Amino acid sequence: ENVVSAPMPGKVLRVLVRVGDRVRVGQGLLVLEAMKMENEIPSPRDGVVKRILVKEGEIDDTGQPLIELG
């Protein structure tokens, strides 16, 4: 899985990584606010952040691509 998608609709509060960062499975990639709760979205695998497809403050839909890993 190279693309991390939104598991729920919500607002992107914080992006915790930058392009080029090495990430490990379970590491937080970004924080979504949904139903007044903050949810940290973890990396599904080890890899390198290739692209960040959303910006802080954006509203996303379920299934929307958020981050691409390489």
Rank of each mutant, 00 (worst) to 15 (best):
E1D: 13
E1K: 13
E1C: 15
N2M: 14
N2C: 15
V3S: 07
V3Q: 07
V3W: 14
V3R: 06
V4G: 02
V4P: 03
V4N: 03
S5E: 08
S5N: 11
S5F: 15
S5K: 14
S5T: 14
S5V: 15
S5P: 08
A6V: 05
A6I: 05
A6M: 08
A6F: 09
A6W: 08
A6H: 03
A6L: 07
A6N: 06
A6C: 11
P7M: 08
P7D: 06
P7A: 08
P7T: 09
P7V: 07
P7H: 08
P7N: 08
M8R: 09
M8F: 15
M8H: 13
M8I: 09
M8W: 15
M8K: 07
P9F: 09
P9T: 11
P9I: 08
P9V: 09
P9Q: 11
P9E: 07
P9M: 11
G10T: 04
G10F: 11
G10Y: 08
K11E: 03
V12D: 00
V12C: 06
L13M: 08
L13Y: 04
R14Y: 07
R14C: 10
R14S: 05
R14Q: 07
R14W: 06
V15D: 02
V15K: 00
V15P: 02
L16V: 04
L16H: 04
L16T: 03
L16G: 01
V17F: 00
V17L: 02
V17S: 00
V17W: 00
R18I: 08
R18C: 11
R18K: 14
V19W: 03
V19Y: 03
V19E: 10
G20C: 12
G20F: 05
G20P: 01
G20S: 04
G20E: 04
G20D: 04
D21T: 06
D21L: 06
D21S: 06
D21E: 13
R22K: 12
R22G: 06
R22N: 10
R22I: 13
V23G: 02
V23L: 03
V23S: 01
V23W: 04
R24L: 09
R24P: 02
R24C: 12
V25K: 15
V25L: 12
V25T: 12
V25F: 12
V25A: 13
G26Q: 03
G26P: 01
G26S: 03
G26F: 05
Q27W: 05
Q27N: 03
G28H: 08
G28S: 12
G28C: 15
L29V: 06
L29R: 00
L29C: 07
L29F: 02
L29T: 01
L29Q: 00
L29A: 00
L29P: 00
L30F: 08
L30E: 00
L30G: 00
L30T: 01
V31I: 13
V31A: 02
V31T: 05
V31H: 02
V31F: 03
L32W: 11
L32Y: 15
E33W: 15
A34E: 05
A34I: 14
A34M: 13
A34R: 09
A34P: 01
A34Y: 15
A34N: 13
M35S: 11
M35C: 13
M35E: 13
M35I: 07
K36Y: 12
K36H: 14
M37T: 12
M37F: 10
M37A: 10
M37H: 11
E38R: 10
E38V: 11
N39K: 14
N39E: 10
N39V: 15
E40C: 15
E40S: 09
E40D: 06
E40I: 15
E40Y: 12
E40R: 09
I41F: 03
I41A: 01
I41W: 03
I41N: 02
P42H: 10
P42N: 10
P42L: 14
S43N: 02
S43D: 00
S43V: 01
S43P: 03
S43M: 02
S43F: 02
S43A: 11
P44I: 05
P44D: 06
P44L: 05
P44M: 05
P44W: 04
R45G: 05
G47N: 01
G47P: 01
G47R: 02
V48P: 01
V49G: 01
V49C: 05
V49A: 01
K50W: 11
K50E: 09
K50I: 14
K50C: 14
K50V: 14
R51T: 09
R51C: 12
R51I: 08
I52N: 00
I52D: 02
I52R: 01
I52P: 02
I52G: 02
L53T: 03
L53N: 05
L53E: 03
V54I: 10
V54Y: 05
V54R: 04
V54M: 06
K55G: 09
K55T: 12
K55D: 09
K55Q: 12
K55E: 12
K55R: 12
E56M: 09
E56G: 08
E56R: 08
G57Y: 05
G57I: 06
G57V: 05
G57T: 05
G57M: 06
G57F: 06
E58W: 14
E58I: 11
E58N: 10
I59D: 09
I59E: 10
D60K: 15
D60F: 15
D60P: 15
D61V: 14
D61C: 13
D61Y: 15
D61L: 13
D61M: 13
D61K: 14
T62L: 13
G63S: 08
G63Y: 07
G63D: 09
Q64G: 09
Q64A: 13
Q64I: 10
Q64C: 11
Q64F: 10
P65S: 07
P65T: 07
L66S: 02
L66M: 11
I67M: 11
I67D: 01
I67F: 08
E68I: 15
E68F: 10
E68S: 06
E68W: 11
E68A: 07
L69S: 01
G70S: 13
G70K: 11
G70M: 14
G70Y: 15
G70F: 15
